[in-house]
Simulated scan of single mutants.
Amino acid sequence: MAIDQHGDAQLEGVSLRSLPKISLHDHLDGGLRPATIVELADDADLDLPEDDAEALGEWFAEKSDSGSLVEYLKTFDVTLSVMQTREGLTRVAREFVEDLAADGVIYGEVRWAPEQHLGGGLTLDEVVEAVQDGIEEGEDLAADAGRDIRVGQLITAMRHTDRSHEIARLAVEWRGRGAVGFDIAGPEDGFLPSRHRKAFDYLAGEFFPVTVHAGEAAGLESIRSALLDGRALRLGHGVRIAEDLEIVQRSGEEVLVEFGDLARWVRDREIPLELSPSSNLQTGAIQRWGTDLEDHPFDLLYQLGFAVTVNVDNRLMSRTSLTRELALLVEAFDYGLDDLEAFQMNAAAGAFLPVEQREELIDLISDGFDR
């Protein structure tokens, strides 16, 4: 499959960008336009690794392709530096939504950690308000351009700090005003979700949806803790659930797999996996299986009936889009439109929305793929 310079491709005569999509795992501070970073840094008199937008984009791609989540996360120091003012946050959120809509996304959830945006003197409430203003402006601009999109906030706590209970309360306070769920992010290995049990207990008592980064830089213990301590309804990445699968026999295209208890639970309960193919390669999340996209256990998980979804994680760091991620999967695993539709259906079913609104998304996806 030929992927053009804009990341689009044709499949069965259809532009992948034109298809309706759902984005569940997309970081606000990983989705900035390089040109915006340059302009905001110039306004704030900040030094950048590169002063030219194109060169800066290349820098992010090079530094992110490290094979280590810890090294990958260091690039966020740059994006966070220009997201410390109300104006910067609102602009970044507005452009984030515009870029999603231009990529054919009809529903997205944007995750970000308010505690990382207080350097300019704003309060937690003020940074959430600034981002929500930008989201709504982006939705309005998309509508003016003939693209309908809705975006909800996943208020995120950093797993290596001690503010998760405070951030959980913040998320619940913003329920109905833009916040649709909660997450913990940051360095995973050595920071189990169990460290934040108080926050998760509070969220469970408030019936507030939770997704947890787990199964990326750490393995099955992290996933287990996300489910038991975090009561996660989705797994952020979750790719290493494949470590609980044992291939016992291969015969041509037939594969006999033995499930561990954890993998069977995740599969049978249809707990969505927020897989991010390009990012999983960059951070070394799939190094147990190989270093190429064809080695990613995505297809194995899909064929075994897991609720796989396709995501970008960080568009800037991976120089990607949801359209491009789908195109890469088509190229790697020879998927057809029916497969891509299945991925979107899984994402719609896992969205942190009331069931009536999820059903509306499912109808929009079905209609879009039928056309």
Rank of each mutant, 00 (worst) to 15 (best):
D244H: 09
L19R: 03
A349I: 08
D148F: 04
D363M: 09
I241Y: 04
E254H: 12
A285M: 08
Q84N: 13
Q116G: 12
D201I: 01
K74L: 15
E166D: 15
A41R: 02
I135R: 11
G284F: 07
L16E: 03
V172P: 05
E360Q: 14
A113N: 08
P114F: 01
E294D: 12
L273D: 04
E173C: 06
D313G: 01
D338P: 01
S194W: 03
N280K: 03
G190M: 11
D52F: 01
G57V: 10
S15K: 14
S366Y: 05
D77P: 07
G350L: 00
I106W: 05
E360F: 05
L48F: 00
W174G: 10
K21C: 03
V14L: 06
H117Q: 05
R150S: 13
N280S: 07
D4E: 12
L364P: 02
R234W: 02
E221K: 14
P187D: 15
Q132Y: 10
M158N: 14
R91C: 00
V38A: 04
D201M: 02
A214E: 08
A143D: 12
F207T: 13
V110P: 03
E12G: 08
L328W: 12
D4T: 07
A218D: 15
T291F: 14
P193T: 05
L300V: 03
G238T: 03
L353A: 00
E115H: 11
T156L: 07
T36I: 08
A232H: 00
L281H: 08
L273H: 11
V151D: 02
H6R: 14
I286N: 02
L273E: 02
G252T: 10
T85H: 09
A61R: 12
V131A: 05
D367Y: 13
L154E: 03
L293V: 06
D125Y: 06
Q5P: 07
E129C: 03
G134L: 04
R163N: 14
K74D: 01
G205I: 09
E360Y: 09
L361H: 10
T211H: 08
A307R: 12
M317L: 13
E253S: 15
Y107E: 04
F96R: 08
A41G: 14
E253T: 14
A263F: 11
L275T: 15
R224D: 13
L300A: 09
F343P: 05
V14P: 08
M158Q: 15
F200M: 04
I223K: 11
G120S: 05
L273P: 02
I135H: 06
R269P: 03
M83R: 07
R324Y: 09
D99P: 00
E360M: 10
R269C: 10
L32D: 08
I149G: 01
A185R: 00
G13P: 07
R86Y: 05
G181L: 10
F200R: 02
L301C: 00
P49F: 13
V239T: 14
G336K: 06
G186M: 12
S321I: 07
D99K: 00
D299L: 10
A55S: 13
V92Y: 02
F96I: 03
D133Y: 07
I22L: 06
G121N: 04
L80K: 14
H160E: 09
G178Q: 05
K63Y: 11
D334E: 15
E71K: 13
P277A: 06
L122M: 14
A171E: 08
R169M: 11
M345P: 01
F96S: 05
A351H: 10
A130I: 09
L192T: 15
Q116H: 14
R288Q: 15
A347Q: 06
T79W: 07
V180C: 10
